[in-house]
Design a protein around this nucleic acid. Structure first.
Length: 927
RNA sequence: GCCCAGGUGGUGGAACUGGUAGACACGCAGGACUUAAAAUCCUGUUGCCAUUGCGGCAGUACGGGUUCGAUUCCCGUCUUGGGCACCA
């Protein structure tokens, strides 16, 4: 009798839903555990078989922790704002609100088919006004905050205003601002506009002019990570640089804390490294070079102040603001010709021409601060405007890029390292002994570095400085489908809306296509834009706005009075386990940490890090199948006999993996699939089969290798899918999806496990007999192994363990209730539907209604321990035979037994040098 | 170029702190049941040599090293995947 997994799953999913058993409430009597998945972006394509991998793993942990007595928060929601939805909407002509709703419905259905234990009462959708109201609220908090470097904390903007009113800008150590100092009198006298402009330089959400990635075709500005090789990631349209007024978030204020706090996180080193590289902290010095015959000074950042005496020239970025001011008229034409070309070069060109040296002499000279030597000032595009000060002190003897530049333009190089030939290449090693370096002569490494910085600080030409690669986060998008900014302009000054005016709802627009102008589609909603209060902001927030705090909203998803209640936040605190892909390593995960830290500073949350433990599921790749069609003929040759027909020239073509089984083509299905194939002829192998070729590629429609979880569930059931996805291999490794192996898992459930409960006739065969020692040992070893495996997220080995356990019990013909009950409980996180169904057969009166409400059984050492141990006996590391001895036999006795063993003499010429006994493991005889 | 993670049978993978390499599956081969097929069950399945049995040798990308013992630790090389890349 075969179980109907589909019916079983539907039945239990319905019962769970009706009983509401996955609804979570605050329970101070229980320890909390928060398991979170990176919520999906509901695209029109639906889920493929790769998406649920992480969800299944997290669901297993959630169910396991519940059985272990934890109060588990395991929610799900949707990241519904963003460009793809808008693009999709434009393509289909449907409103994004509508397509988003449809897609979410589809996603929820697919997710529910797999039997996840989500508390859907806590669902969040980032595009829902009841949610983004609080995204806007956090924005207002950021807008009305500044970062105090002295206290290393964000503070309410009012404390800054107060300070200005009493002391002016004196003694303010804040992130960001660059303005001339002013007094309290100045401040109090200034008009509103001036004050607001000054404050804007301090706010954590602020406006500034900056070059952005403007994409003409999409009619919008793109984030750096949305641009690949100078083209838009989506659509591959050209991207150019443009200066626009933008909203920014001052994430750089948190650079040091974002870096340091990585240490306390249980993330993979790869993940932490990516974040470290992104933050890009470097220690060095900021110093100023006087420009001859002008009042200007050029500021440079260097990580190698020790090479200061090797400065042979200075290079400015083409965008450097002093360029026009310091260039003498004699050189102006040449410089301007160069900068206009360099600036207009696209990002793509700059990338591909990395090796090409270009630049021009400005005709100006700077003065070396220590030697008063004349230093020529050049402009070159190897210097980036966005990093440091956009100017470098070029030391060709120590830096390869400077060396390349110097060599190309035949600028003389000052050698500064002992025993190093500067005419061949630069020497970037820090531990070289310095020469030609005045007071640094003979020094090296750290010593030289500090001596140089000390001298720089003493002479007042510069100071020690830590620099970061991290940029402030662009927060403006010229798009329709995003959160509107709760901001109005009066006389071009940005004013925040009052908190009680939130949410500021996105107006319903028929025409939300990009305007093709730098302003967003919202500009077309003229009634909405022009209000009595002022003119609304027409930019919207980027996709990561909503995802930067959604994990907090789950704690108290339906609260109309706060983004999360104090009580809920105090109980759930942070995410214990977060599972998601590495693609969010430096985007989402960085922003979310930043927001959490800000909210922490302002005492809205109690933890400064949101995600304690992070697991990255590896990407599931597609396994494509190919058929080989003869050129100019409708003849297809089986892959395994291709080499027997060298005369037939064939081309490989992708074939839908859903009509291929174990790499054998379903010929009938192939003929129906496509009109061209109707009259196809085949050259089959000796088994009269058509064998397909294979290749591992990304899963995509165009490669016909997409497998839909719904199809797997239809054929094998939800539990088979869950088990098989886990069985595929370690959760964190990328791997190809290959449906070939699924039969084994399916057989395990519908045949082997089932046979423990039912005989061939379909009658229940469970007995009440007491279990034997052997049976208890099998059970308890399994319990221990499953528990260990889940704790270390080794789900694939768990599945094997279940198989071994069931195989062993079948061998013993054990269908004893005492054993089966515990087996079902520990299996239930992996295969919840089947476990519930079989639970009905063994459930007693005192047991819980649902198996998922039961308690995880405790394994007992007394059942696992064996009275005897089988020792493999090795000679010089090669195992030759085995002996069985009592478990508590002393080492000396084991050695004695080995020596006395009849086999031993076979491998020995004389007495052994040594006999090593590894207790409980093995014996090694050293000859 | 730099940083990180990998490389184990025909395939996915196991071996947790150095202790029986290849668990568990897939596939394949042979057998049982069947008129036949499917399903199911049983046996075998790293390679080479020996097969009358006992078996023997090699083997975890490659070359070295440490150790009684190395897939595991160290050094070098090759290679796959991911990230970063004129970051001063």
């Amino acid at each position: 009798m075969e179980p109907d997994f589909k019916k079983i799953a539907e039945n239990w999913q319905k019962k769970w839903r009706e009983a509401g058993i996955y609804q979570t409430h605050i329970d101070p009597a229980k320890p909390k555990y928060y398991v979170l998945d990176m919520f999906p972006y509901p695209s029109g394509a639906g889920l493929h078989v790769g998406h649920p991998l992480g969800y299944i793993a997290s669901d297993i942990v959630a169910r396991f922790k519940r059985l272990k007595g934890f109060n588990v928060l395991h929610p799900m929601g949707f990241d519904a704002f963003g460009l793809p939805a808008e693009q999709y909407a434009i393509q289909t002509g449907k409103h994004p609100a509508e397509t988003t709703e449809t897609n979410i419905k589809r996603y929820k259905e697919q997710l529910n088919n797999i039997g996840f234990s989500y508390d859907w009462n806590r669902e969040v959708v980032t595009s829902d006004p009841s949610y983004y109201r609080w995204t806007q609220w956090i924005f207002l908090k950021l807008f009305n905050a500044w970062y105090n470097n002295d206290t290393q904390k964000a503070e309410e903007i009012s404390t800054l205003i107060q300070h200005f009113e009493y002391s002016g800008s004196e003694r303010i150590n804040a992130a960001g601002a660059e303005h001339t100092p002013f007094s309290a009198q100045d401040w109090n006298r200034w008009p509103e506009k001036t004050k607001r402009d000054i404050l804007m330089q301090y706010r954590l959400a602020y406006q500034s002019y900056a070059t952005v990635n403007w994409c003409e075709a999409l009619g919008t500005v793109l984030a750096n990570d949305e641009v690949k090789d100078g083209l838009s990631e989506r659509g591959g349209h050209p991207v150019e640089k443009r200066s626009m007024r933008q909203w920014f978030l001052r994430i750089t204020a948190y650079a040091e804390r974002l870096l340091n706090d990585l240490e306390q996180l249980e993330w993979t080193d790869a993940m932490k490294d990516m974040q470290r590289n992104w933050i890009g902290r470097s220690e060095g010095a900021m110093l100023r070079f006087k420009v001859e015959q002008t009042q200007y000074e050029i500021e440079v950042f260097t990580t190698r102040p020790d090479t200061i005496f090797g400065v042979d020239f200075i290079t400015l970025a083409p965008e450097h603001e002093l360029l026009d001011k310091i260039t003498p008229t004699s050189h102006l034409d040449a410089v301007q010709a160069y900068t206009s070309v360099a600036k207009n070069r696209s990002e793509r060109e700059r990338m591909t021409e990395v090796k090409k040296v270009s630049g021009v002499f400005t005709g100006a000279f700077a003065t070396h601060p220590f030697t008063n030597k004349k230093i020529p000032i050049w402009v070159g595009d190897y210097v980036l405007a966005g990093y440091g000060t956009g100017a470098v002190m070029a030391v060709p003897a120590g830096d390869q890029r400077d060396w390349d530049f110097a060599t190309h333009f035949q600028i003389p190089i000052t050698p500064i390292h002992q025993e190093h030939d500067s005419s061949k290449a630069a020497n970037p090693a820090k531990d070289s002994i310095l020469v030609n370096s005045n007071f640094l002569n003979g020094l090296q490494g750290e010593q030289a570095f500090s001596a140089a910085v000390d001298a720089i600080e003493k002479t007042g030409i510069g100071k020690r400085k830590v620099n970061y690669r991290l940029r402030d986060a662009g927060f403006s998008r010229q798009r329709y489908w995003g959160e509107p900014f709760p901001v109005v302009y009066r006389e071009d000054i940005a004013y925040a809306l009052d908190e009680n005016e939130l949410p500021l709802e996105l107006p319903l627009m028929e025409d939300f296509k990009p305007t093709g102008q730098p302003e967003g589609p919202l500009a077309k909603a003229t009634q909405w834009v022009h209000t009595n209060e002022g003119v609304r902001e027409t930019d919207t927030m980027p996709g990561y706005a909503g995802s930067s705090w959604y994990f907090l909203r789950y704690m108290d998803a339906n609260n109309p009075d706060a983004f999360v209640s104090k009580e809920a936040e105090a109980y759930w605190q942070d995410v214990d386990l977060y599972i998601g892909g590495t693609e969010h390593a430096v985007g989402h995960l960085m922003y979310a940490r930043f927001w959490q830290k800000f909210l922490f500073d302002r005492h809205f949350v109690s933890k400064s890090e949101p995600f304690k433990k992070l697991i990255n599921q590896g990407m599931i790749l597609g396994r494509s199948n190919f058929v080989y069609r003869a050129v100019n003929d409708n003849l297809f040759v089986s892959h395994d006999i291709l080499n027997k027909h060298p005369d037939i020239k064939t081309i490989p073509l992708h074939v839908d993996v859903n009509i291929v089984r174990n790499d054998v083509l379903d010929i009938e299905a192939f003929k129906i699939a496509n009109n061209d194939n109707k009259n196809a002829r085949f050259l089959l192998n000796e088994n009269a089969e058509y064998v397909c070729g294979t290749e591992v590629e990304k899963m995509s429609k165009s490669k016909f290798n997409v497998v839909n979880p719904d199809d797997i569930i239809e054929e094998y059931g939800a539990d088979t899918l869950r088990l098989y996805e886990m069985f595929l291999g370690p959760i964190d490794q990328p791997k190809p999806w290959n449906t070939n192996g699924i039969e084994g898992v399916y057989r395990f459930l519908n045949n082997k496990l089932w046979r423990l409960f039912y005989n061939e006739k379909g009658d229940v065969k469970i007995s009440d007999e007491p279990p034997t020692e052997k049976e208890l040992r099998i059970l308890h070893k399994t319990i221990r192994k499953i528990e260990e495996d889940i704790e270390r997220f080794s789900f694939n080995t768990s599945v094997s363990t279940f198989m071994i356990c069931v195989n062993d019990l079948l061998e013993l013909k054990c269908s004893k209730k005492k054993i089966l009950k515990d087996l079902l409980i520990i299996l239930s996180p992996y295969a919840p539907h089947v476990a519930e169904e079989l639970w009905l057969l063994v459930k007693g009166n005192n047991d819980k209604q649902f198996i998922v409400q039961e308690t995880f059984p405790e394994w007992k050492m007394e059942y696992i321990e064996e009275s005897t141990v089988m020792y493999p006996v090795a000679f010089n590391g090669k195992v030759r035979f085995k002996i069985e001895v009592p478990a508590d036999l002393p080492e000396a006795d084991i050695q004695q037994q080995v020596t006395a063993h009849s086999e031993t003499s076979k491998w020995l010429n004389g007495p052994p040098k040594k006999i090593i006994v590894v207790k409980g493991r093995m014996v090694n005889v050293v000859i």
